[in-house]
Design a binder for these strands. Structure first.
Length: 291
DNA sequence: CTGGGGAAGGGGCCC
DNA sequence: TGGGCCCCTTCCCCA
């Protein structure tokens, strides 16, 4: 019987599925910038209001994440005063590697962050000569004018020429990335790290087959233990009775039989057991009937 | 019903 | 980040 039930589940406190792992290629490959991308943004005090005739933009209803540093004209830089940041800080998710028409909703689902604010249409705006948002240049960060180093990670200060470059940095290098949630596509179990998810997926793919009987295992050391059932090797010996075991845990359980103290006690009849499973079986057999 | 052995699973830790 | 190992746990089977 598969023992997949041993995997921790979070059914009682489900978290949003921000990322569902599809394949190994999905882990390694395409659209890396969409994996919970967090892009720094500095919002101007005024942003262009949404025009009724405008088609909805991805950022119209987009929640947001961190900061984007837009290149400012010189007079804007001079206007910056010390003290409180004159620019409003907001958060926005930008998919730099998708076409502008691609739905960002899916990308946003990767994020484990609550919406902070709803951005107006035509966000992010670029600034006109007078410092006002230029309506014809506000279709998105991908089209925003920028010079060398026009984008900067506000955490590590690395400059980037393109938003995509900054996005890639934030995704792959900067350690202030947004917390993520990785979901197994086979069973919907969720993990906070990609490594944990990869390890879990092995319990589905079973990449370690036994060369003798063909039975497959999730991890090499499980296969090693299984091979011992074929070879009869028992490297773990009891120091009390010289009995040998193929599995260390089984030796540990055996050592309990030599112990005077039994760790597991029934709360009703005070009977003690050497193993938890024995106590459970005892309780389920009727010693402790429920109300 | 109980005790115990065997086999196998999972997560966590360390390198 | 991945592999190896450890620890704990569970189920099955048999005496």
């Amino acid at each position: 019987m598969p023992r997949s039930f041993l995997v921790k589940t979070h059914s009682s406190h489900k978290v949003p599925k921000h990322r569902r792992l599809e394949t190994q290629r999905d882990i390694d490959g395409a659209c890396s910038a969409c994996r919970g991308l967090v892009v720094p943004l500095l919002l101007p005090e005024k942003v262009a209001s949404s025009t009724p005739g405008d088609p909805p933009q991805p950022w119209d209803r987009t929640s947001v994440i961190a900061r984007i540093s837009l290149p400012l004209p010189r007079h804007e830089e001079a206007r910056e005063a010390p003290g409180p940041d004159p620019l409003e800080v907001s958060r926005v998710h930008v998919c730099a590697s998708r076409a502008p028409s691609a739905p960002l909703k899916d990308s946003l689902n990767h994020l484990n962050l609550p919406p902070l604010l709803v951005l107006p249409a035509r966000w992010p705006p670029t600034l006109g000569p007078a410092g006002d948002p230029a309506p014809d240049r506000v279709r998105g960060a991908e089209r925003a004018p920028r010079g060398p180093g026009g984008f900067q990670c506000l955490h590590c200060r690395k400059p980037y020429h393109t938003l995509a470059g900054l996005a890639r940095h934030r995704e792959l290098q900067c350690h202030l990335r947004a917390p993520r949630c990785f979901t197994c596509k086979y069973c919907d179990k969720e993990y906070s790290s990609l490594g944990a998810l990869k390890m879990h997926i092995r319990t589905h793919t079973l990449p370690c087959p036994c060369a003798i009987c063909g039975k497959a295992f999730s991890r090499p050391w499980l296969l090693q233990g299984h091979i011992r059932t074929h070879t009869g090797e028992k490297p773990y010996t009891c120091s009390h009775c010289s009995r040998a075991f193929a599995d260390r845990s089984n030796l540990r359980a055996h050592l309990q039989t030599h112990s005077d103290t039994r760790k597991y006690q029934c709360k009703r009849c005070a009977k003690t057991f050497s193993r938890m499973s024995l106590l459970v079986r005892h309780q389920e057999s009727g010693c402790c009937p429920g109300p």
